[in-house]
Write a protein that binds this DNA or RNA. Structure first.
Lengths: 195, 195
DNA sequence: TAATTTAGATGATACATGTAATCTTAAATG
DNA sequence: CATTTAAGATTACATGTATCATCTAAATTA
């Protein structure tokens, strides 16, 4: 059936990225094989190396892809007011049962952060970059330092992880509610002079 | 060289648990093989199934083992004052560079939480139990609900994950500092009537 | 249109994996 | 002391893994 047009190669490439981004978040990076990804993308494993140099390469690329997907809307927002609203919406969606259950399309850092942290090289790098990017978005433009953005990010990620660890929706809800309350505290009481 | 005395079997058993608890935290559960664990415990992989039914069994047992290790001192504390002090010490150690760098002996939930959350069955269960246990310890005895304990746990875990994702000690320090500030806010401003 | 290129399929490689059967030997038991 | 038992070593097995060489047919290009 090969060979396909340049445009269709791009499409295949994107299908691989999408499939990888979903599977990696759902099952974890180590637990997902290149063949799994290719099958989910509707291809056999052989063609993989026409698109990526190695699995490590795919990890980095698909993670960036996933972060772009989640974050690009927010970054487009221009005004301070628009950003603030986006931020609140994002947090509300983040701390929801839907997000707890659908890790496949959820926050890449929450799903793969621990695994990326153990990596060295490209995957670790894109993880660190993603953190910068997200902390910047969660931070108020008027703020001096990155502290509150970082703390907010930590709280969001931690809360989702806890909620996913629980064994019932009720327990998950308790975790989410605690997360929401804590986020409010950060927003209302973060010291002005802290970084 | 077999066979060994009952007492020495226990010792072997514990060596396996220790090795697993360390390797799982350092490299991740999926990335660590039974053979890796047995080698680290000073044995060949053949004897493994005299001690555990399966890798899944080992995951659950070693995780419980690690949590016990980390938490038992705190649980022994009787007085409210003693507990409070233990809590503060624990948080200070938790949010330290040492903890960021030494995941091997660090918080099991921070190191394996995401992976356990993806599991079903025994490993997921012990993960959920660990969460209950730790949130209970982080919670003030005078409090009504588990909310603040949960939020504190989320913040601790999230902060460590972020710090481990960074690419320099300075960035890691920024994350840790943000975590400390946020913890203070939770301690000072958590609403009295919230669960 | 003929020659060339290459995306993806097929199949192979070399190795790691979890698990189990079998063997060895010393401890436990009588 | 003789017998039984079982901890750990050795080996085997079936499966899964990342990667690569080769094949194919269609898209490009000359």
């Amino acid at each position: 059936m090969p060979r396909m047009s340049e445009a269709e190669k791009q499409r295949s490439h994107n299908r691989i990225l999408d499939a990888a981004a979903q599977l990696f978040r759902e099952r974890g990076v180590e637990a997902t094989s290149v063949a799994d990804v290719m099958k989910a993308a509707g291809m056999t494993h052989g063609g993989f190396y026409r698109h990526f140099e190695s699995k490590e390469d795919l990890i980095a690329a698909s993670f960036r892809h996933a972060v772009d997907d989640v974050v690009s809307d927010m970054e487009r927002e221009e005004t301070s007011e628009g950003r603030k609203k986006e931020r609140q919406d994002y947090i509300a969606k983040y701390l929801s049962q839907a997000h707890v259950q659908d890790s496949r399309n959820g926050c890449p850092l929450a799903a793969m952060g621990t695994e990326l942290a153990r990596t060295t090289g490209a995957p670790h790098q894109v993880g660190a970059q993603a953190l910068d990017r997200m902390a910047a978005l969660l931070r108020d433009t008027s703020e001096t330092g990155s502290g509150r953005g970082l703390a907010t990010m930590a709280l969001l990620m931690g809360t989702i992880t806890l909620a996913r660890l629980t064994e019932s929706e009720e327990e998950a809800d308790r975790a989410l509610e605690a997360g929401r309350t804590a986020i409010e505290l950060l927003q209302d009481h973060w010291p002005k002079d802290r970084s």
